[in-house]
Lab assay of single mutants.
Amino acid sequence: VKVFRALYTFEPRTPDELYFEEGDIIYITDMSDTNWWKGTSKGRTGLIPSNYVAEQ
């Protein structure tokens, strides 16, 4: 598990995607895809765009 911080707010387009706000901490559990990672924030899990976060 790696810890990342959201650089921007992300509004999901599908139920599989995770909503998060700029500054949120996201725990990444799967980075197997280059563009979409699986992450958890505020008790919810979903896909996030990798270019919206920076490693802490």
Rank of each mutant, 00 (worst) to 15 (best):
V1D: 11
V1M: 13
K2H: 11
V3K: 12
F4G: 05
F4K: 03
R5V: 15
A6T: 01
L7A: 04
L7W: 03
T9Y: 06
F10W: 15
F10M: 05
F10I: 04
P12M: 07
P12N: 05
P12Q: 04
R13V: 09
R13Y: 09
R13S: 14
T14K: 12
T14Q: 10
T14C: 15
T14E: 09
P15W: 07
P15R: 09
P15M: 09
D16Y: 13
D16G: 11
D16M: 11
D16R: 08
E17I: 04
L18W: 01
L18T: 01
L18F: 04
Y19N: 07
Y19V: 04
Y19W: 09
F20V: 11
F20T: 02
F20G: 00
E21I: 07
E21K: 10
G23L: 03
G23A: 04
G23F: 04
G23R: 02
D24L: 03
D24Y: 04
I25P: 04
I25D: 07
I25F: 09
Y27Q: 07
Y27K: 05
Y27T: 09
Y27F: 13
Y27H: 08
I28K: 00
I28T: 01
T29K: 06
T29F: 15
D30M: 06
D30L: 04
D30R: 03
D30H: 05
M31I: 06
M31T: 10
S32D: 08
S32G: 08
D33Y: 03
D33E: 08
D33V: 05
T34A: 15
T34L: 14
N35E: 13
N35W: 13
N35Y: 15
N35C: 15
W36V: 05
W36A: 02
W36L: 05
K38T: 14
T40E: 13
S41L: 15
S41A: 12
S41Q: 05
K42Q: 12
K42F: 07
K42E: 08
G43H: 05
G43C: 07
G43L: 03
R44C: 07
R44S: 07
R44Q: 09
R44T: 06
T45G: 06
T45F: 13
T45V: 12
T45I: 10
G46Q: 00
L47P: 01
L47H: 04
L47C: 07
I48G: 01
P49Q: 05
P49H: 06
P49I: 04
P49N: 07
P49C: 11
S50I: 06
S50L: 04
N51M: 11
N51F: 09
N51V: 08
N51W: 15
Y52M: 12
Y52R: 04
Y52K: 05
V53Q: 01
V53Y: 02
V53R: 01
A54C: 13
A54D: 08
A54K: 14
E55H: 09
E55R: 08
E55G: 06
E55P: 14
Q56G: 11
Q56V: 15
Q56W: 15
Q56D: 14
